[in-house]
Each structure stands twice: as C-alpha cells, then as structure tokens.
Design a protein around this nucleic acid. Structure first.
Lengths: 365, 365
DNA sequence: TTGTAAGCGTTATCAA
DNA sequence: TTGATAACGCTTACAA
C-alpha cells in the first residue's frame, strides 16, 4: 500500500489529492498504458490476471479518470453547452430541465450560459463555451449575431436550435409546431363562439417562433373568413411596462366586436400574464367579457379567474429531443439538418367559455 | 502568415482548428514561454518590442488560451459547480439566475447538475463536478448523503450552501432569514384579525428551511399567546396528490376557528398553489373564508383571487451572494464559515384582508 | 529579459 | 499482450 493510499484511508483530513493513472499503475505494478487500456478497451487486449490487478488497484484508490486530461488528449470533453436567452423564462427553464436530463443520461454534463436577454452577448457565450471544448451546443437564442454559432458549426461542433430559428443557419431545429398550435387555439376560440380575435405577442423583432405564430394566426383568419361568418382578426405587440397601449388594444377589441364575442390569443406565458393584469385593471371577466387562449401551460393557469385555457408545449420533451439530436450527431450521425416539430396540446378551461361557469367546475390540467 | 492563419481567414469551410500557444509563438517568432508570460504577467517581465509582437500575433490568430489545458496545469479551472435539488422549483431557478450572473461577472462558468429531486444522486453530482475540477460548489440540496459534500470541502474546494443547511457541514450558508420571514407573515395575519392559524408545508423531513419555518411559527404562536387573545396555531404537512387530507385540514381549521378568523401560512410557492387548488375545490374565498400569506412571491401571485399576500425572498440576491461568497473564498479569503441571512419582504394583498375588496384594488408587487 | 524543458493526467504509437 | 514514450496546450523552474 502506497503512502498516498494510506492518506486516503486515514480519517485525518489532509487535502488528499485525487489518485491519478500513475498511482494506479504503481499500485498494480503495471504501466500507465495498461491502466488506460483497461479503462478504454476493457475486454480486448488484456490478460485476465493483469486486468483484475488493475481493477483492484482502481477500487483501492477510488480512482476515476480526469475528464480534463481526457478532453485535452482526445479533444472530446463530454460537455455540452447550453445557451439560453433568458433563464427567467419558464419555457427556457423547462427546456433546460429536459436537456439536462437527457445529457445526464448519456453521461454528458451541461455548461450553462444565460444571456439575460442581452443578445449581444451571444457570441461571447459561444466563445466561452467552445473554449471549454464543449462537444456541441444547444441554443435557445435569437441568433442575431449569426457569426458565432456558424463559427461553432464550422469548427465541426454540432448545434441544435430550440424554439428559435437562426436566420441563415444550417442546424437541427427543434420546436413546437407553431402553426398547429395556433390552429388549435384559434379553432377552439371560434368553436366557442368568439369572432373578433386579437393576437397579442411580445415585440416580434426577429424571434422566429413569434413570427410563425403571428403568420399562422393571420392565415387562419383569412382561410376561415369564408366559412365562419363575421370572423375578424388583428394583432398587437405588447411592450413591457406599456400597460396603456395594451389596455387600449383590449378596449378597441371589444369595441370592434360590437355584438360579437371578442377573444384573445396570447403568444406566450409572459404575454398571458400581461393580459391577465390588463383584465384586472379593466375589471373584465375572462370568458364573458373577453375570451382567452394562451400559449404555454403553467402551474398557475388553472387558478387565474375561471381558469386559463392554454396550448401546452411539450417543454420537457423539447429539451430532451434537442439534447438527443445533439448526442446522435456526436455519435456520428451524418444527416442533413433536421426540423423536429412537436405538437401542442389544447387545455380548455373557463377563460374560453362565454358563459361564466361556477367556480367549482374549474378544471385543472 | 502561417498556413493555419490562411485557413482561418479563408471563407471556405475547413474545420479550422483553434490556434494554440505554439502557433502564436511561431507567428511572433518567440518562445511559448514568452507568450505565456505575456498572457499572465503582461506588464512585468516583458520588453516593449516583444510584447507588441506577441500582441499582434495573438490578434492575428484570434488566439485565446485553452481553459482545459490551463486547468490541467494550474489546477484551477474557472468553473463553478451548481447542484440544485430541482430546477423546476422557481426558487432554485431564481438562485440559479443570480448565481450565474455573479459567476459570469467574475469570469467563471457554471456547470449545472440537477438532482430532479432524487437526493440519492447528490454524491454522483458532486463527484462528476469535482472530476471536472470545479473550483467550488454551490449546493441547494438536502445534503442527505453528507459524505460527498464534505469530501469536496476536504479536497479544499469551498462550498456554499443555499437555503438548505447540511446537517454537520462546516460551510458558508446563505439563506432567507426564515424566522424573520415567519414573524412578518404571522404578525401580518394577526394584525389583520386572523386568530386560528395553520402552517402548511411540504413534508419537512430534513429540509432545514422547512424545519426552521415551522419552529419559528410555533414559537411565535406561543410567544404571542399572552398578548393576543384567542390566538391558536397548528401545523400540517401536505403531500403531493393528497388533496383529501389538505381539504380536511382546511375544514378542520375553519371549524376550530369557530367565531374567529382562520388564516394559513404556507411555507413556499408549491404549497401555496396546493392551497389555492384546495380553496377552489372547497369554493372558499381568500381573505374572507380563509386568510393566506405564503412564502415566495411569484409573477402570478397578484392575480389569484383577490391577490395572494406573500413573503418575497430576495432570490436573485441569494444566488448572487452565494456565488459571491464562493468567489471570495476562491480569491483566498480565509474565514470561519459564515451565515448570511437576508430579510424577506411582506407584500400584502387581498388574501389577507378579511373583507373582500373590489377587484380593482388588487395591488401588484 | 528570454528560451529550454519538464510536467499536469491522459491516450496513442510504437517496439518489445 | 505489455511497456516506453510522445503528444494534447499550457505554466513554471531553471538556465542563459
């Protein structure tokens, strides 16, 4: 037993260093190369006797290889970089969660970089992450500064985009089927009798998912105009803290509706909350005064007013699939860029029922 | 200009390798050591002439040092490990956000490991993270399997605990002032006239923050019994999906209250949501039928019923302070373990007003 | 002030 | 089948 080993088993608290491959080699009386072979090619190439000696030594020293050193040597780090535009966004968190899980299951660790909604830092993030030799990147970002991600892809690092497309980037893309989700929501509003519809989103800028949802909304309205008498639609972009214009937009909506029922489709949970706040300010009731269906189901959706109808995204699934795509690529899958669109699920609740239901019939998800 | 450099500037897409210190040395016509000195000791030790040559070469090759190699050599990785019991928990996310920000500001990157509420994987997490040479750990975990974290600390890696104490662990601890928060909440309920109080929490097990809050609740009640006529308190542990017992607990509360006002103090956002669901099932109104103050302010708190009164935790601050503590230690600060308790803030809303207020007087945070 | 060389913990290429 | 030995990209004695 080596001195190091004694230290390790002793109950005193000297800052015991991790055992290295050299320690194991010494302990087992073999060369470092042999230990390395045991680790990487286990069954093949090794005498039974030697193998067990190494095995014992490894156990005795509680040795585990240094991923850092491995990364340096192999170029592979077992690290995956995740860049999110905003960790505060519940959607991002859910993706994060799914991705982290999938990574763990495949033995990868996640390095996280949060942009805090400052899209200028995107290349900084990608830079930092690639410096650490991450093997691939999952991006839930705007891709404003296209160079950075493209650069990573050019370095041969696979990239997966989640929810937000980058303009000119050839990469796997995982997202909700936005058009389908919109159809689900709008059709539901129409079926419930709402006719004057308003699509409310955050500023659309270059966020692909918002653009797609708005486009789908517009085309649904024009496609259905013939079949559904009196169906009208318009759109509104809500800015943070600009309560005035949102209130006005809702007032306008009701006015335009006239005798018809006014309904809102909100483009995500953040917007939904703003609409909720506006309704409270106006003293209006969901369903009765204005109908609502919103993207993103949250834990609190069932408990706001009569319950908020939502289009739930399979968020965990999105994260998991994104990580899965990446890991497939890392395993060598060589395919042209894929698009994977997952379907949303409509959860109808009181906010899309024109007649107020008694409180006790609220339905949870 | 070297061949490598040409590759880099060309617009074709060969998987251009990152420039290394050797490339820079060659380009500048100096030794690797000189380049390294320029990087680490810039001002001192270098001739003006050589320094600029190196500087130019670095710029030309867009060189940046490999943190992996640096880590291997120095033992320091500029990496901080964060282990959270559950990324789904909004509190954890908020801490995550604050911590990530502080880390970024100090040039550290965060490696994330989510336990998904499986506390048995805690040592696995710490193991994985320390293998990557993280310089320190931020733990928002139960610390059931005490060995792992203690091991890390013994390896000389500073550890900061957030929100949850580990039983026998000597480490910096950052948390809400739970006792103060409870006093804030209970005093508010008492002032509003509620007399029969119930503290509802998730199963307490070994979660220190829950234990502390319950203890504070109990002692507040017994301390105030003399001054406040008819003040009574009890506690209830709510299990997931066990709606029956929660409903019963609330019914019991109202029954015990008799002519007095019944009030609930819920121990975190998760529990608050369960209480909200129970109230909906029972068809009771917040404030009027049962008063409520809950730990954790959320974006949706103002919009549930008459608005939920909450005790807001300075979550971002907690994360930032935790990371700050760690970074101080990494810079060499040598102090005995500290406890840093931050105060909560009471946000009174309709749920703690015995008389129902008109909808329009809801106050947002 | 600069260069040479050893070494951090691995893996891979060669001989043996 | 096993063992030296040379990298991987960097830092740091030690020499010059």
């Amino acid at each position: 037993m080596s001195a190091k080993n004694l230290q390790r088993t002793a109950t005193s608290t000297p800052p015991a260093a991790r055992a290295t491959i050299a320690d194991v080699a010494r302990e087992a009386g073999v060369s470092k190369a042999t230990v390395s072979r045991f680790l990487n090619h286990r069954e093949t190439l090794l005498t039974r006797d030697i193998a067990t000696r190494v095995e014992v030594a490894i156990a005795a020293l509680a040795y585990s290889p240094s991923p850092m050193a491995q990364a340096l040597k192999r170029g592979r780090s077992r690290l995956i970089g995740l860049v999110v535009a905003d960790v505060t966004n519940p959607f991002s968190v859910a993706v994060l969660r799914g991705a982290e899980k999938a990574c763990q299951e495949s033995g990868y660790l996640l390095m996280l970089f949060n942009l805090g909604n400052d899209s200028r830092r995107e290349s900084e993030a990608i830079e930092a992450l690639t410096a650490y030799q991450v093997e691939g990147l999952i991006l839930n970002t705007l891709g404003r500064d296209a160079g950075a991600a493209a650069e990573a892809a050019r370095h041969g690092k696979p990239v997966v985009l989640v929810d937000r497309r980058h303009h000119d980037m050839q990469a796997d893309f995982v997202s909700l089927d936005n058009a389908g989700g919109v159809r689900l929501g709008v059709q539901h509003l129409v079926d419930a009798g709402y006719r004057e519809l308003l699509f409310v989103s955050q500023p659309i800028k270059d966020v692909s998912s918002r653009m797609e949802r708005e486009a789908a909304f517009r085309s649904f309205i024009s496609d259905s105009a013939a079949d559904v008498a009196g169906l009208q639609g318009s759109t509104f972009e809500s800015r943070e803290d600009d309560t005035y214009n949102l209130d006005e937009a809702l007032r306008g909506l009701r006015q335009r509706a006239g005798g018809r029922l006014p309904g809102v489709l909100s483009s995500n949970a953040v917007v939904t909350l703003r609409v909720v706040a506006a309704m409270a300010r106006l003293g209006w009731r969901f369903g009765v005064d204005v109908g609502l269906v919103g993207f993103d189901d949250t834990e609190w959706s069932p408990y706001i007013g009569p319950g908020l109808s939502t289009i739930a995204q399979p968020t965990d699934e999105l994260g998991r699939v994104a990580a899965g795509c990446l890991i497939e690529r890392l395993k060598g899958l060589d395919l042209p860029p894929r698009q994977i669109l997952l379907s949303g699920r409509l959860l109808p609740r009181g906010s899309s029922q024109p007649e107020a239901a008694p409180v006790s019939t609220r339905q949870a998800s």
